[in-house]
Simulated scan of single mutants.
Amino acid sequence: MPLTDTAIKKLKASDKPMKVSDERGLYLLVNPSGSKLWRWKFRFDGKEKVLPLGQYPDTSLAQAREAREDARKLLALGNDPMAQRKAKKIARRLAIEDTFAAIAKKWWESWKAARSDSHTLYVWRRLEADIF
């Protein structure tokens, strides 16, 4: 029987982690510390995997079900939802790290070794004031 919001609120932590299933592989992991974590169990290429979907109550039951359905659609297309999530995370990180300011700072760090302190500070101040 699918979970309800009131049933989730009534769940208490025990001395061991407890899995409370919802439907279609979605379950709520209740840890001894009291945290309640949404997980989705699925199989990809013959291997069982578990995709974390968020923490209750930050992620509601409806949001967890929606995230599971989105992941199921990816799985139906032959894509690994965990690999998709990891690729998006890496792309976000690279977008942040590959800004002009970050690349200029790396260049400046390698460039300043052969220059005087006053000149390197001058160049850095000009970069900050005029370019960044």
Score class of each variant (00 low, 15 high):
residue 117 D to F: 02
residue 127 L to T: 09
residue 19 K to L: 04
residue 39 R to Y: 00
residue 72 R to G: 09
residue 126 R to T: 15
residue 32 P to D: 04
residue 130 D to G: 02
residue 20 V to R: 03
residue 42 F to N: 09
residue 16 K to Y: 04
residue 5 D to G: 13
residue 88 K to S: 09
residue 75 L to Y: 05
residue 25 G to F: 06
residue 127 L to S: 02
residue 11 L to M: 08
residue 10 K to Y: 02
residue 95 A to H: 12
residue 18 M to F: 14
residue 94 L to T: 04
residue 78 G to I: 05
residue 80 D to H: 12
residue 10 K to D: 04
residue 44 F to L: 10
residue 116 S to P: 08
residue 108 W to P: 00
residue 21 S to Y: 14
residue 5 D to H: 07
residue 46 G to N: 12
residue 18 M to V: 00
residue 74 L to F: 06
residue 13 A to N: 01
residue 48 E to Q: 14
residue 2 P to G: 02
residue 29 L to E: 11
residue 41 K to F: 05
residue 103 I to F: 07
residue 83 A to G: 09
residue 28 L to N: 02
residue 50 V to P: 04
residue 79 N to V: 04
residue 86 K to G: 01
residue 92 R to K: 15
residue 74 L to T: 05
residue 115 R to K: 15
residue 62 A to W: 00
residue 101 A to D: 15
residue 77 L to K: 11
residue 4 T to W: 02
residue 13 A to Y: 04
residue 24 R to N: 13
residue 91 A to E: 13
residue 102 A to L: 05
residue 103 I to Y: 09
residue 80 D to P: 03
residue 99 T to W: 06
residue 13 A to E: 00
residue 117 D to R: 08
residue 62 A to N: 03
residue 77 L to W: 00
residue 20 V to E: 00
residue 128 E to W: 04
residue 95 A to Q: 09
residue 56 Y to M: 04
residue 103 I to R: 15
residue 89 K to H: 07
residue 98 D to H: 13
residue 113 A to P: 03
residue 58 D to K: 06
residue 111 W to M: 08
residue 77 L to Q: 11
residue 80 D to C: 07
residue 19 K to C: 10
residue 70 D to R: 15
residue 61 L to R: 08
residue 118 S to E: 15
residue 16 K to A: 03
residue 40 W to V: 00
residue 8 I to T: 08
residue 121 L to M: 02
residue 63 Q to D: 02
residue 103 I to V: 10
residue 106 K to H: 01
residue 102 A to K: 12
residue 117 D to E: 12
residue 119 H to C: 09
residue 54 G to L: 05
residue 53 L to A: 04
residue 49 K to L: 07
residue 65 R to N: 10
residue 128 E to R: 14
residue 119 H to Y: 15
residue 89 K to G: 06
residue 116 S to G: 13
residue 97 E to V: 08
residue 17 P to Q: 05
residue 45 D to M: 15
residue 49 K to S: 12
residue 120 T to R: 07
residue 17 P to C: 13
residue 28 L to R: 01
residue 15 D to M: 01
residue 131 I to K: 10
residue 67 A to N: 14
residue 46 G to D: 13
residue 112 K to F: 07
residue 28 L to I: 02
residue 11 L to F: 13
residue 61 L to T: 07
residue 42 F to R: 12
residue 96 I to D: 14
residue 75 L to I: 06
residue 55 Q to L: 00
residue 34 G to N: 04
residue 55 Q to H: 07
residue 29 L to Q: 10
residue 62 A to I: 05
residue 127 L to F: 05
residue 7 A to D: 01
residue 70 D to Q: 15
residue 5 D to R: 08
